[in-house]
Nucleic acid binder design. Structure first.
Lengths: 207, 207
DNA sequence: ACAAAGACGGTAACAGTGTTACCGCAAAGA
DNA sequence: TCTTTGCGGTAACACTGTTACCGTCTTTGT
């Protein structure tokens, strides 16, 4: 590995990042329809060939964009929770979920609504994406340890994800206005958690 | 209106139906990516021009397909509920929702996940589509009248839709296996309804 | 009854898409 | 120094949605 070759390699990684950045700008500015190889290569100032040497094909670029979305999503989730109390932390996590979807709706559509036509993530990408939900799972587990919830952490996390995704997805599709959507969102998340709250109510054992 | 012109008109409607049928077959057999004007016109045996005279443009055909999906969805919902008891009827409605999505996943993606690239339903189409949820709303209203639920019918129906869509959408995206998904689905729907059940529990007033 | 007019449909073209064969060129190895 | 290797730009391929052109057919005006 000569000095030149590794310099070239970091150069390639810089170009890769620039392409991903240009793709992001195009995505949020004009939507997935603007993501053509020619427009992206034009925006970054290179030929179309570069995209194929760096990403293999458009699908490779789409996968990179997909993973980039999950990275942003994970950052948003992680920084969106500030409280020390596990249960409020979990609620903050839900709020951060919706907040991210509203902040970067195009990315949300890419990740969860198949906005990139023809792109289906392979098993590895799917697993990498789902890793963002480790945060949610950990927050649920914290509530269980603290005794603020009772039940199976995986089940609770799954149900919260389903609820949050359903509410958010329909809101992004234009079926609900902002205030209505937010109210429904918190109601839904609360309803999901209620059966798992400990306390006086008779011993319901969900699932 | 001469005899010929109306004969021609019914003929055009027949061709329109044939095109929609061929489009449906292509959709369920090969997915939205196979829906090209040339393939559709080839499958029905006419020129591409016919599609443009009958549907205006590809968007018109996509809108027709979108509405066709909602018509099928509405039929599935209507025939999926058989019980006379309002609450079990409502649960059957939820089960029919998921059953339809699993039976015709491509249509579900077209309707709720924007599987047709670039197609966004206009206000009229959106309203026509949402009309399928009148069934859900009516079932909720029946439960309210029968005293089996308490609350706002619109809110309850919205929450059920969000929950069902979230669970179904993630299942179709491959994030959950069949048995897991079904169990989560019924748990989620039950959780949504629990706060609105009447009875001894202290007067929680959701929302 | 016969010509003028209008509508439908097939052919072939246009611009735009993802992708790649070809070629030039710069660097690495012998 | 000469060969080889690999990257990148150009131009082409097959495909997409869409439409101008033209022939054919029915309706209409006189």
């Amino acid at each position: 590995m000569t000095a030149y070759s590794e310099a070239q390699q970091v150069g390639q990684e810089a170009v890769r990042a620039a392409i991903l950045d240009a793709t992001t700008h195009l995505l949020v500015a004009e939507g997935p329809g603007a993501l053509t190889v020619r427009r992206i290569s034009g925006a970054v100032g290179c030929s179309t060939k570069v995209i194929y040497t760096l990403f293999g094909a458009k699908e490779g670029l789409e996968e990179a964009l997909w993973l980039e979305g999950f990275a942003r999503f994970e950052r948003a989730l992680r920084t969106g929770r500030t409280s020390a109390d596990p249960l409020t932390r979990l609620h903050e996590c839900g709020a951060a979920y919706r907040a991210y979807a509203l902040a970067e709706p195009e990315y949300y559509r890419v990740m969860f609504q198949g906005a990139l036509p023809g792109f289906v993530p392979d098993a590895a990408a799917l697993a990498a994406g789902r890793r963002a939900f480790d945060i949610l799972y950990a927050d649920v587990a914290s509530c269980l340890e603290a005794g603020q919830l009772r039940g199976d952490a995986q089940e609770i996390a799954d149900l919260l994800w389903m609820a949050a995704h359903g509410a958010t997805s329909l809101e992004l599709s234009g079926h609900f206005g902002p205030v209505e959507a937010e109210q429904r969102f918190v109601t839904l998340c609360a309803s999901v958690l209620t059966p798992f709250l400990p306390g006086p109510p008779d011993e319901r054992t969900p699932s």
